[in-house]
Design a protein around this nucleic acid. Structure first.
Lengths: 352, 352
DNA sequence: GCACAACGCTAAATCGGTTTAACAAAACGG
DNA sequence: CCGTTTTGTTAAACCGATTTAGCGTTGTGC
């Protein structure tokens, strides 16, 4: 890892001073230095394979061209990994290198991570969460120009980007209403405190019902543990309802719940989408695309959010003018094969 | 991001020179400087909130306490993300910061990434792949002390860690043999060229059969596209065999294929594990644990490999003495509920 | 009272670049 | 031919720390 050739080696070979080399190689030469000399310097640099020591350069210029991404768990879980990818992509495109730190949500580690990154003189910091969160307390050493990703400080004051969970839910439920469904259950997750996304998606769900003139049935809003087993149990509860109250469609809080709903449907002898329509949320590749039939779901715009955050951080995109600086990233509906019109007759008991 | 207080500010407040401050704060003072002065310096540093500029320090000491992780896609896919987590954990534990770069496998980008990291004077480099790979050509500017993660150069010469795919397959198939199965199919993946893991797992499969005195039936080795649909198609082919040739157990190349195998079993009216046992590979959380019944599978030791790589890189663990420097990380069997003894009678057609 | 050692501390060099101010030589204007 | 610009280049300061060599003062031994 030892830096072999330095600027003065280039200078020696080209027969000029280090200052000249620096000027030429940074294109600060403009018209001060004749093309002949420039050529000579560049050739020398090329020849001996010179690459500037960025530490030295950064020390002087006070810009490191590095940014830090501190997250609770993104780099840890398969869930929101594309936010990291996006951040990385933007960083690379703009000539930046990305420091990645995972804190697991531990405030002490968070503080240390921020401090370590600042000591490294990073040019900017992104604070990211795995799930859409509203943060009550932040690391107190967070620089004023940090950007939030998939999270926003309760107090505002920082640029932040979060998914438009409400809008996504509207799209999902509207899809069901448009297919002709009137009895639509919401299979929510059972967590305390309820995640931000839960409340927002419920709002979207209720809004569509209201607009469609459908009276929400409290029995159709159930909660389950956020995994396939929980989804199956919760879905079973609504599918067990007497025929006239039973839903013809399920809006699931996420794809894992939807996976459980598929199982519940099977156990009830219902075929998807003929007898029962299902919509999920998250568009988890390993689930939504692999289920049979493919799950219609709402995609979380992780990549787009990741890009947004770093672009704003690097000044490549203008900060939101919005009062609290929060941007809602749209969650597009991904149509697959789990939605169909409701059955016209009593669902038949076909072979599962 | 401007570094406010510097070492000379501390010096001024404490009434000593910058040299003394450095000595004290780096514990190089030992007995040269009396406790009273040391105390004074530390207090001053504390008071004005001094944190050293690591760039300046690194420039002088020639150690940056940063490492680079360049990978084809790990940070991009949900698949092997725990390798990054592990790398991050070890880095943090030992006071290092981690640069993450994703190249998508593009050789030009790889070269640039390595160059950029070296220009940043990283103390070490990990070259990681998402899947177990044998690399024919490496970035030519890779430093000699790089470490390979989930990959190994064909030519050897670098420390490298890869999963013991063969051993994992042995454990998986042995589990089936121990349960009493004799007709065990291998649902392989259909890729050209076949991934390293495919060959190794097949070897393990064949070895167990041989040891158990079971003649391998070529009809029981099928290939399918590596997703649930492909797995379903491939599994169907062996399940369609006449009763006496039909397998009672399936060893699937990965969990996605196994997911498809579950669907195929359903379509054939077979219940898992009563009528058909299934073992997967990878232990993908979103699949293996969520399937019903839970999938017995082999876990890829991503976390352990990630730790190993960075520990070796940082000298916290001794390099393999092995000729080619490759370490095989064991893949433990994860028992869930998809394995049972083979049915004694003709499998009945229960309700699916 | 003097040589010498120990103590406590610091000036200055250094890492490898960037940047500014200025100098020498050439060109130009009158 | 002399004063002034312009041109081409560089010496030196600087970024903020670490590290080495050494300086002044006090203490010790004889």
């Amino acid at each position: 890892m030892t830096q072999r050739v330095g600027i003065k080696d280039v200078a020696r070979v080209a027969g000029v001073s280090a200052a000249t080399v620096s000027l030429v190689l940074n294109d600060r030469a403009a018209d001060r230095i004749p093309p002949s000399t420039q050529e000579r310097v560049r050739l020398a640099a090329q020849e001996i394979g010179y690459a500037p020591n960025r530490l030295a350069r950064s020390l002087r210029t006070r810009r490191t061209h590095t940014i830090g991404l501190v997250s609770d768990r993104i780099a840890t879980t398969p869930y929101a990994v594309r936010m990291v990818e996006a951040a990385q992509d933007v960083a690379r495109e703009r000539g930046y290198l990305l420091f990645l730190v995972n804190t697991g949500g531990d405030p002490a580690l968070e503080r240390d991570a921020v401090a370590a990154l600042l000591d490294q003189q990073v040019d900017g910091l992104v604070y990211a969460c795995m799930w859409h969160r509203v943060l009550d307390d932040l690391p107190e050493n967070l620089p004023a120009d940090a950007v939030f990703l998939d999270a926003r400080p309760a107090t505002g004051g920082f640029p932040a980007v979060v998914p438009d969970d409400r809008g996504g839910a509207v799209a999902a439920v509207q899809e069901l209403v448009d297919a002709g469904h009137r009895r639509i259950a919401f299979i929510d997750i059972d967590e305390e405190p309820p995640p931000v996304a839960s409340g927002l998606r419920r709002e979207g769900y209720l809004e569509v019902l209201r607009r469609a003139g459908i009276e929400p049935d409290p029995a159709l809003h159930v909660r389950g543990v956020s995994d396939a087993a929980g989804g199956m149990a919760a879905a079973s509860r609504v599918l067990d309802l007497p025929a006239e109250r039973r839903p013809t469609a399920l809006f699931c809080f996420n794809d894992r719940i939807a996976m459980g709903a598929y199982a519940a449907a099977r156990h009830h002898g219902l075929e998807i989408p003929t007898d029962l329509s299902v919509v999920g949320y998250d568009d988890q590749q390993l689930i939504a695309a692999e289920l049979d039939p493919g799950l219609t779901t709402v995609r979380l715009p992780h990549y787009e959010m990741g890009r947004w955050a770093v672009e704003v951080l690097l000044g490549a995109r203008e900060r939101p003018t919005d009062e609290d600086g929060v941007v809602l990233m749209p969650c597009p509906l991904v149509r697959r094969d789990s939605v169909a019109p409701p059955p016209t007759r009593e669902p038949g008991r076909r072979r599962g």
